[in-house]
Design a protein around this nucleic acid. Structure first.
Lengths: 193, 193
DNA sequence: TTCCGCATGTAACTGGTTACATGATTGT
DNA sequence: ACAATCATGTAACCAGTTACATGCGGAA
């Protein structure tokens, strides 16, 4: 599993709590990796059992204590080992939205175009996030002395943008193709009317 | 979960065994849905318990018996209910390849470009499959009287193609950007050398 | 006063993967 | 002689999701 390795990667940027790691993930890899807090806590525990990370508790006043995890040598070794390990196959994907399009013939075009429009909006929203991250992350990384990481991280954001752009285009085309008469209605405020 | 619904969808095309369903999935939705045989068998069992499908055993000579599942009325009702149900969020994704690119700064450009080249090949392979499906499926669907489904199914294949094309381009660009001197080597047989 | 952010987790469940087991027929 | 295709599954495990529980401080 890779959640362990994702966490090792983030910890290689510096020590953090489970909560911090969740936030970092949401502001960078959200579009290709997701983990929920309870899973992160459990996984950090397992990583401690393998001696990959260290935990220190920082008491705070009038706030819950911070359980700060830091990368240990065996953890760093495991991270570099994993990073070198070649990938044999494309990752498996589970996309229920595309399943609904695939079986669109069961209900007909209207039902499918509703899903397409909704999905298009969601990807437009994601484009906004990705754009924000692209503006924000380089400065943040520089602030932590992580300048070398910038091009790699920007590359993944760029791919995310391209993917969402492709989705948005495809939704548009597909709506047009499946329900030609409704297609205009989905692009409001496009000049003359 | 949607595996149940994926199977309901395929069974709406006609009765099938677990083994048949696996093959059908591999030749159509492979790029956005994957299920392994043991999971399919278990799930079909669960669907029978919910009275969504019927099972009949056909004895064959010199071959294992076929356990054929057929959609029942409650199953069809559940399928249409699910198809109409709106999707609130983009599906969550877990892509370890992009994670390795994201943390590329830990090891440096060479390690990352190896992964990129490999990944590019994998997507080129997938493009071959998708192309084949696009040629093959319309005739097959017509043979089963499923003409109405063709445009929806082709739409998902087209998206798959666009996605893989985007990946291939991005890999190319990213290799060029991260390791400009190695970039030529990755495009062999491109005329002059 | 109500919600959001900080910060921790546990328990139960669902879904997905891997390994194992069987066994005939057909093609290389 | 060996691998692939047909055809079934079970058991154990791993990963991911959902629901629940706690509790302070600050902003709206």
């Amino acid at each position: 599993m890779s959640l362990k390795h994702a966490l090792l990667g983030f910890l290689s940027f510096g020590p953090a709590t489970g909560y911090d790691l969740k936030n970092q993930m949401e502001q960078s890899v959200q579009h290709f990796w997701h983990a929920d807090l309870s899973q992160i806590y459990r996984t950090l525990d397992a990583m401690r059992a393998e001696d990959w990370v260290d935990k220190t508790v920082e008491q705070q006043e009038s706030r819950p204590p911070r359980h700060v995890y830091a990368l240990k040598e065996p953890g760093r070794a495991e991270l570099t080992r994993w990073l070198q390990e070649p990938l044999e196959q494309l990752p498996t994907v589970h996309n229920p939205f595309l399943l609904k399009v695939f079986f669109g013939g069961v209900l007909g075009a209207e039902a499918v175009t509703d899903h397409l429009r909704r999905h298009q909006e969601l990807h437009q929203g994601r484009l906004g996030c990705l754009h924000e991250f692209e503006e924000m992350l380089p400065d943040q990384l520089r602030a932590y002395g992580l300048d070398d990481h910038i091009p790699y991280i920007l590359a993944t954001l760029k791919l995310g943008r391209k993917m969402s752009e492709t989705y948005v285009e495809w939704c548009e085309e597909t709506i047009r193709q499946l329900a030609p008469d409704e297609a205009e209605a989905s692009v409001p405020g496009q000049g003359e009317r």
